[in-house]
Amino acid sequence: MTGETPASPPGPLLDIAELAKRFTVGSKQGLLARATSFRKPVAPLPQLHAVDEVSFTIGRGETVGLVGESGCGKSTLVRLINRLLDPTSGSIRLGGAELADFKARDFAANPHRARIQMVFQDAGDSLNPRYTAADAIADPVRRLKKMSGAQLKARIAELADMTGLPRELLQRFPHQLSGGQKARVGIARAIAVEPELLILDEPTAALDVSVQVVILQLLQQLKRELGMSYLFVSHDLNVVRLLCDRVLVMYLGKVVEQGPAAEVFADPKHPYTKALISAIPQAEPEQRVGRLRLGGEPRSPIDPDPTVCRFYGRCPKGTPRCAEEMPLLRPAGPARQVACHFA
């Protein structure tokens, strides 16, 4: 890994291939029983398939939206890519470098750490309450770029200007800042180390619409200026539509559809995507084409049957074939992929 230069080799920036994360969940036997049952062969523990063989790419300068309901594995996927969690299998290549082999616990000291940064959901909760805005922004720069003194100070001021945070607010603590200002601090510290990939986890979910617009426009502008790629996680589909070039739709650990944002929104192919788009609140309901509501609850992600479509049971289409054969992600148009037998 040391011989690699981050200076743009061809190909996508991020290449995720067959990435999987399974968590072992509790068994009926107690821990003590398991520890002492050295004679009997122990049945394998149930596995929760949080992310199941997911493959996709993110191009340089591209914004990819990741949508899906809570519990579908969005956050686990993000934590895997961000190297906060170790994958069970699969590869995470960032500009040619394989990141999946590094241990998450050591990754903070890894030279690749600065290349992927993250903006967390609630800036209020993710900032250290005892750090001023300047401390919060300085921390990653000091650690990863080894800057100090006047140079560090100048960098902080520059970042504040870039994110539209008035310099006089830099000495304030998070509780003295408004929601929009805290969001700016969260963005400033993430871009401080000049990442190539910025992961945004619902960056505007805690903000009022009037502030949300400014933050989204700021993100758009920063992307243009700094040439970063974005992975934008959100369940506000209207925001995804505004910001993203391409969308990935996840359902129970699987990517069920992906394609250019405009195409997916105009003509969703997977029944789950259809339901998702049909659920976007609309000021003029009569313009909506077809109304689709999902009944039931999602299937269990624990030891899912590998031959049954994950959406089976909630899907309005559901045929016997869906219970016998798991649909694979296959091309459906020049840049689109869908995992459904009937799309």
Partner: peptide
């Protein structure tokens, strides 16, 4: 009117949307 203009919807683009100045 400003609140409506700041609400993401189907037909608007990010550049057309305007925030509400002040607090």
């Amino acid at each position: 009117a400003k609140l409506l203009a700041a609400t993401p919807g189907e037909t608007v683009s990010l550049a057309d949307m305007a925030s509400i100045p002040g607090g």
